[in-house]
Design a protein around this nucleic acid. Structure first.
Lengths: 350, 350
DNA sequence: CTGAAAGCGCTAACAA
DNA sequence: TTGTTAGCGCTTTCAG
């Protein structure tokens, strides 16, 4: 029976190489003040014995924990997983964050936290005390939650705020919601659309408003009116139906709609169909998410690809590099418009 | 600036409660030999101070690490994440495993490992040495990889093999592939189908063959022939197209097909359509995956819901409960057939 | 039933 | 440039 103790420890390496523990430690951590010959000898022993430092022991001695904690909204995440309708936010997070973390010898751990919870501090505090992560990635709607931010700052833990431009502690990163919304709008303008509706996300997410700003800016730029063409949803299907019904019932209904989530876009697609409208002939549609869903609708949806993986990867990178000065300005990773089949020139050009 | 050291330690609690460290430790670990009054007093201090033990320190002193490692195939997983086509295996793993682990104060960490790699031992060994997980969940095709199993056994780490019935160390769990395939087949038989084709998965996965067995058994039971009605794919789309073409080109083509993955089912759907066949009028179709894809095809696909979350949850539970005798027989969690729109009675009843 | 001492594997601080 | 010492927070002996 194997023992629970670590098989190969720093002691074994030190003994094998005939040096002190400290020297081995220096080699492991790539510290200066080790003669090349020495370093080589130690490295040889490390390789020979297949030694890998224990993260727990490293943490214990006041060094890093090599752990990055990614915080997601519990309710929304579980709902997505249970529904199995193609939401792949967590997968994209892992794709970007986990792989980038691994490059640096770090691991990324997912933690679900209720935003609307009274004991959020206790919950998150427990995770921090138990794990002592070297960095935390906050995703909306946690990114601007003052309790979370306060707690993290208090613990002196580095953290990144995805989808936040606010000042304050932590590194702010955005996916250029404003620019993406403007891009999508311009694409429709170029196709000849004049009445472009917008279905926004909930106010709880500040990125909801940035998207409205982008749409409005591009409309202004083209000299087009926006009055009455914006509705708000909660990212969910039902709210999308409501918003779409209202927009399509307008006297002069929009010939194109941009919706701030895949589910709201899907809802708009179905609602349009029920009203006898063909997409893209009678109505052009752009989704503000490039989740799996957009590939399986008919027609396939033109969508803004939000660079989730790239953004999380960047966040992890910034979190890990402790020497670098954290960026003073919000970091922006821009998305791209993926043109598919749901956008076309409007029928008449009134 | 906050300090890197743990804010509230066992010492603080001991001091606050006026007892020894050891007593606090006993209370934390719910050990016997503590008087109720004492226990209560200590617990009060713990609550008051918001104390949570450091996992690293617990690990260091030879106790548990409260970590479960879930091993997935690197190549396949990254391909799924990158394609964004609705594969949600990892999400289901997290849904089942992470939540169950959390119930017991454990965390689940995902690790990607190449099966076809020469240095798989080094790679996995490094993860084990660094993390010292209390348990490991192996998913196909890792579940029967002798190198992995050997290494785990050697390290004395408990592990679960998902999708494996083989004897040997570790806990074997299956999703009743045979039974599910038989169920699906019977459903088609009851609808009146007599020629039911089967598109199997690659031999590398032993569950591929169990599914064939189930299909064959149900066909035998109904007195129906299976000769020439089985083709093999690799779970991917292209292989599904090939298999479907062959089956549909048969002299007396099948009136129904069961495919062993969502992508192969999708491929069959498209191939049938190209041949001018309507699903389900001319061809009934059952998918062996209930991933998001099946909800977005037209028609929506009847599918076998594999209880991934439930199975992983069970695995984690068995891994965590160290006192319980590990099950001698493979644990089976059965899936269910979700009947949607892709199955119907055959046209003629020849 | 409770406490004191020793040590897990590693690194920070200091010494040589 | 290298080695020695002390200690991180906790649990395991072993005494009381």
């Amino acid at each position: 029976m194997a023992r629970r103790r670590q098989s190969v420890t720093i002691k074994h390496v030190a003994a094998d190489a005939g040096v002190s523990l400290q020297t081995v430690s220096r080699v492991i951590n790539n510290e200066p003040n080790v003669r090349p010959a020495m370093k080589e000898r130690v490295q040889a022993s490390i390789d020979k014995l297949g030694y890998v430092p224990s993260i727990a022991a490293q943490r214990m001695s006041g060094s890093r924990s090599y752990l990055i904690l990614a915080l997601n909204d519990r309710e929304r995440t579980i709902a997505e997983w249970t529904a199995r309708e193609g939401g792949d936010w967590v997968d994209q997070m892992l794709l970007g964050g986990m792989l980038k973390a691994a490059e640096h010898g770090y691991r990324m751990l997912i933690e679900l936290v209720d935003t609307h919870d009274d004991h959020i501090e206790r919950e998150l505090g427990a995770a921090l005390s138990a794990l002592h992560p070297d960095g935390v990635v906050l995703t909306p709607p946690h990114s601007e939650n003052p309790q979370i931010i306060g707690l993290l700052a208090e613990h002196g833990i580095r953290f990144a705020r995805i989808g936040s431009k606010a000042d304050g502690p932590g590194i702010a990163l955005t996916m250029d919601d404003e620019g993406s919304a403007a891009d999508a709008t311009r694409h429709l303008v170029e196709l000849g659309h004049k009445r472009i509706g917008f279905i926004a996300g909930p106010e709880e997410y500040s990125l909801s408003d940035w998207r409205i700003d982008g749409w409005r800016a591009a409309m202004d730029e083209a000299g087009l009116p926006t009055d009455g063409l914006c509705r708000r949803g909660d990212f969910g299907y039902d709210s999308g139906v409501r918003a779409a019904r209202e927009l399509l019932a307008l006297d002069r209904r929009p010939t194109a709609i941009i919706a701030s989530s895949d589910h709201m876009t899907l809802a708009t697609l179905e609602t349009a169909r029920e009203s006898g409208l063909d997409v893209p002939r009678d109505l052009s549609l752009i989704s503000f998410d490039n989740t799996p869903i957009v590939r399986f609708t008919n027609p396939r949806l033109t969508a803004i690809d939000q660079p989730i993986a790239a953004t999380i990867a960047r966040a992890v990178e910034l979190l890990i590099d402790r020497d670098a000065e954290p960026p003073a300005q919000p970091v922006t990773i821009s998305g791209e418009l993926r043109i598919r089949q749901s956008t076309a020139a409007p029928l008449s050009d009134d």
